[in-house]
Design a protein around this nucleic acid. Sequence first.
DNA 1: GTGCCGCCGCGGTTACATCA
DNA 2: TTGATGTAACCGCGGCGGCA
Length: 214
Amino acid sequence: MDHVEEKMLFPYAVSNYYNQVQVQVQNGEQKTRRRRKKVKEGELSAELKKRRLNDEQVKFLEMSFKKERKLETGRKVGLATELGLDPKQVAVWFQNRRARHKSKQLEEEYTKLKSAHDSVVVEKCHLENEVMKLKERLCEVEEEMKKLSMNGNTVPSGGNSSPSSSFSTITYHPQPQLLVKEFGAEAEPEIFYVPEYSEYGYPNFLDWGSVYGI
DNA sequence: GTGCCGCCGCGGTTACATCA
DNA sequence: TTGATGTAACCGCGGCGGCA
């Protein structure tokens, strides 16, 4: 490719379009880089103004990109010949296109992950709400038991009653108890069994789930 | 095995084009 | 007119294959 042709295809790839500038690179160090000169209004040549690829060229390149995202030399030269471009332009177009594709993919992936995250947050709120209700219910039951023991009643144990000195030392050896679950005004009462009580008068920790049917 | 060279892809950047 | 966004082209770097 001679100089004139190069200028036609790459108007910026000519030395007098560049300045040597000091730039700061990623690690903070200063480096000399070649930078395109800014062109003043009115100084834009015809070549500079026709930098953008036309619709037909873009369409063709897009079709080619869909088939294969990487560009081997033969294909690059073929495309360049077909479109009247420089092979380097084709290479640059594919490079930029891959970058755009990757960026778009990342954006989509982020959207999906964010959506999944939001769902989990909502689910967490529901579960926390449920835990609060269960704690309230537990307090009510404990209060009820306290009252019963204060009145000198024993907590029914499968029809058999046994005396107890105080709430803190009360020990149950129950047959499975029947309770009525009464969450929500509109909910049907639900009958379920209370598990065996521990030595502290409370169900074993791991049994609480079965107490409330969760 | 090693050093050099050319090519390629990638991440990041710049300047210009376009649009609201 | 201006700021935001898109795009073409570039830089610097690292990886890889061919070659002496």
